[in-house]
């Protein structure tokens, strides 16, 4: 059984049938990339999985438990963290408080301290700026904060929505390096990216989403060599 099983998921976004019966699996320890153009339904899919949007039909099972009827705050408790598109850090709170918000569901003080130390180790810049108001960080630093905040809940799976969007090439490389580190630490990653090349380089498997449907799936390496993917997403 896969860790995350999405079956025949259908989502309406207003009057638009944004997701049309898609199915995919994420196995424990994998990095799965969901690639596709703007408006293909990638963010909608992630928001439905983590409970911010309501599905019209289908099922999303995480470790065998149905997520579609679970409120978002319970989904975090089950071990799923979401790094949302546009980062959505708490601009008016300090960096440190943003990180403690990431551990909101945890009650083990010692464990939280331990995770915080690990996050600071991974993102030394966050420790240097822990007292700074998060809104004053640079875009790249804010992305680091959003990722660090997600890791604070000690998740089994991290869902990431366009983590490299709007960042300088230097930070883009940094983001993908961190995703690899997260995978190496045994945490599963479901990654939505417009930067298909980078995403396919680090992913184990990938799904290609086009106007709400999965049109292609397979090993990331195979997809990189697929002519239609090359043409549509890799600009070759």
């Amino acid at each position: 059984m896969a860790m995350l099983e999405v079956r025949d998921l259908e989502v309406n976004y207003g009057a638009i049938n944004a997701i049309k019966k898609i199915s995919f699996d994420v196995n424990e320890g994998e990095v799965i990339a969901l690639i596709g153009a703007n408006g293909a339904g990638k963010t909608t899919t992630l928001h439905t999985i983590t409970g911010l949007l309501k599905a019209k039909g289908g099922s999303v099972k995480f470790e065998g438990k149905e997520l579609l009827k679970t409120p978002p705050h319970k989904i975090v408790e089950m071990g799923m963290a979401h790094v949302p598109e546009g980062r959505r850090i708490f601009q008016q709170l300090s960096v440190y408080k943003n990180l403690t918000m990431g551990a909101f569901i945890r009650k083990d003080k010692a464990g939280i301290e331990e995770t915080l130390a690990k996050v600071y180790e991974k993102f030394p810049r966050l420790e240097e700026r822990k007292k700074q108001i998060a809104g004053t960080l640079s875009g790249g630093e804010q992305q680091m904060l959003a990722m660090g905040r997600a890791l604070m809940s000690n998740p089994k799976i991290v869902v990431m929505d366009e983590p490299s969007m709007g960042l300088s090439p230097l930070f883009v490389g940094e983001v993908f390096k961190i995703i690899e580190e997260i995978k190496a630490s045994g945490t599963t990653v479901l990654l939505v990216e417009q930067n298909a090349k980078k995403a396919l380089e680090i992913a184990d498997r990938a799904y290609v989403l086009e106007t709400g449907k999965i049109v292609l799936s397979g090993d990331a390496k195979d997809l990189m060599n697929d002519d239609s993917v090359k043409k549509a997403y890799l600009g070759e």
């Binding site: 911010l52 963290a81 959505r88 408080k97 403690t100 918000m101 990431g102 569901i105 905040r149």
Partner: peptide, 24 residues
């Protein structure tokens, strides 16, 4: 306090606060 911080978080971005596990 934790609840106080959560209140500030909800006030700024309700959706993001939910993703942290805050019951709005």
């Amino acid at each position: 306090t934790k609840i106080g911080t959560a209140m500030q978080a909800v006030s700024e971005d309700r959706g993001a606060a939910q993703l942290m596990g805050v019951n709005v």
